[in-house]
Amino acid sequence: MMNTKFWLLFPAFGLLFLAGSQAQTPIQDRAVVAQQERMVFKQWDEDRFLPRPNRFLGIPTNSNWYLTWALHPNYPKLDRRPLSARGEQTQRMGLAVAMKISSDYYKQQTDTIRNLATREMARISGAFSSADPLYVLYYKKELSPLENIEAQAFQHHSAQVKAYLEENGAYAWYLENMKSLAERYGFAKTQDMERGQRILMYHRILLDLRKLQSDWDRKLALSQKMLAFRQSIQVSQKRNLLDQADQSEDILADILKKRILLR
C-alpha cells in the first residue's frame, strides 16, 4: 500500500523538483538597491555609494571599490537624479511650465487682438451701420425721402402741377438729382469706413437734400402760380370774347334799326 502511494506521488515530487531547480534566485545587491533608491527618491550622497573604499591612511583598500568607482571617479560627485534641482526631468518640467506661461501669454495677446479686431470691424462695417444711435435717432428720419423718391415728389399737389412739371422737364431734373443723392446715401450705408466719416457723409447728403428740396418746393410753388395765372388768363379771355360778342350783337341790332327807319 505504501509503495503504491509512493509511486503515485513520485511524479508530483518530480515536478516540484524541476520547478524549484528552474526558479530564479533573487539577488539582494546592496549597491544596486542603494543606487535605485538614490536615483528615485533618496538624497544623493557621495559618501553612501557602495561598495565603500575602506580607506587606510587616505588610500582606498577595497578592490571592489576600484572595480566599480575607480573607472568613474566623477560619477558620485554629480547629482544624476532626474528629479533633482538640476535634473533633466526637473528641467523638462520647468521648461514645460515656462512654455505654458508663454503660450498663455500669447493666447491672451491674440484674444485681445481678436477682440479689438472684432470691435473695430463692428465699428467700421457697413453691415452694422443701421444700428448707429445717431443714425437711428436723426439721420434715418431726415434722409427718408431718398428711400421713396417718386411717392414724396408731389405730396399735397394736384395732378395738373405734376403734368406741368413733367412737361417743362423740371420733374426729370428732380429725379436725376434725387437718384444721385440716393446712390451716395446707399454707398454711405453699405461701405466699410470710420464712423465719423460715415456721419460726415450723412450730413453732406442731408445738406444737399435740403437744398434740392428747397429748389423743388420753389418750383412747385412757381408751377402753382403759373397754372393759376394761366387759368386766370383763360377766364379773362373767355370774358373778353363774351363781351366782344355782346358788343357785336348790339352793333348789329343798331344797324338793323337804322335800316328799318330808313325804309
Rank of each mutant, 00 (worst) to 15 (best):
M201A: 10
L207M: 15
L206D: 14
L146C: 02
L206M: 04
R198L: 03
E167Q: 10
R198F: 08
E166K: 03
M121W: 09
A159H: 02
K189H: 10
K162L: 10
H157L: 10
H203M: 05
K141L: 15
E166G: 09
S158K: 01
Y202F: 09
G94F: 05
L165V: 04
S125W: 01
K179H: 10
V136M: 11
A85E: 11
A85Q: 14
R184T: 05
S102D: 09
T190Q: 08
E166D: 13
A170N: 11
A163W: 02
F154E: 02
R86C: 07
S84C: 06
A122K: 13
I199Y: 03
P133V: 08
H156I: 14
P133Y: 04
S84N: 04
S102T: 14
S144Q: 10
S144R: 02
L146Q: 00
T90I: 04
S103G: 10
F128T: 04
P133M: 12
A85Y: 04
T190H: 06
S144W: 00
Y171R: 02
A131L: 12
E88V: 08
H156T: 10
Y139Q: 01
K107R: 14
L134G: 14
D111H: 02
A163D: 05
M201H: 15
Y171N: 11
R81S: 07
L207E: 13
N148S: 07
R80L: 13
K141V: 13
L207D: 11
L175D: 10
Q160A: 14
V97H: 03
T118S: 14
Y105K: 09
E166N: 14
S102H: 15
K189I: 12
S130C: 15
M178Y: 00
L207Q: 10
S103A: 12
A151E: 13
L206T: 01
A188I: 05
R86E: 08
N177Q: 06
S125H: 01
T112Q: 11
T90V: 05
K140V: 12
